[in-house]
């Protein structure tokens, strides 16, 4: 949490408030728009998968630019590490707090103060926990898209038990 405060202050000086918020506001509207489009009025899988697909396309494109200066990655773990550090800090102003893997294609990326959630809820309240998946669907797609362009076909799911921390489970599909 403390780290986050320092980060946002530092970025205020260099990039300005609007720059910082633009993504957050746009993302919020994106979520609202997609959900309002749903015909049944309930929050089904279909709406979230549309968000996820948007994330996928964005992630697929973003990775081209972010890896411009990089040499090729050694292996899968190397790519995931890149996602946890450079990729995450350029998008969410911080690095992934914890990375775990079973070395058989399952990676768990944990962010203790995820940027899209840290204005929403605190750890001691269960409020908004039910609504949090809709705020994570885009990012799941983002991860999947980025990895896809790096050559890893995967499925990404997110889980939250206490806001504002969340875990992304990356399951690599072996071909």
């Amino acid at each position: 949490m403390k780290q986050q405060i320092i980060d946002s202050k530092a970025s205020l000086g260099t990039t300005g408030e609007a720059d910082d918020c633009l993504f957050e506001y746009l993302h919020a509207e994106l979520v609202n728009y997609v959900l309002s489009k749903s015909s049944s009025g309930t929050e089904g899988e279909e709406e979230l998968s549309r968000l996820e697909w948007m994330g996928f396309s964005v992630g697929y494109r973003i990775i081209e630019r972010l890896t411009r200066e990089w040499s090729r990655f050694k292996d899968e773990l190397d790519m995931i590490k890149f996602i946890c550090t450079d990729f995450w800090s350029s998008l969410y102003h911080k690095q992934i707090d914890n990375l775990r893997t079973n070395h058989h294609g399952v990676y768990v990326l944990q962010d203790n103060a995820f940027r899209l959630l840290d204005k929403v809820g605190a750890s001691n309240s269960k409020q908004y926990l039910k609504e949090s998946p809709r705020l994570l669907a885009f990012t799941c797609g983002l991860l999947r898209g980025s990895l896809a362009n790096l050559g890893i076909i995967s499925t990404v799911t997110a889980e939250t038990t206490t806001l504002p921390s969340c875990k992304f489970h990356v399951q690599v599909q072996k071909i």
């Binding site: 605190a122 409020q127 705020l135």
Partner: peptide, 23 residues
């Protein structure tokens, strides 16, 4: 600004429900 405006789940111009805001 931080906890109402930047909270996409907070309806604007309605009584504020967010517990984080209250805190």
């Amino acid at each position: 600004l931080e906890y109402v405006i930047k909270n996409p789940l907070c309806q604007l111009n309605e009584p504020i429900q967010s517990e984080l805001f209250k805190m």
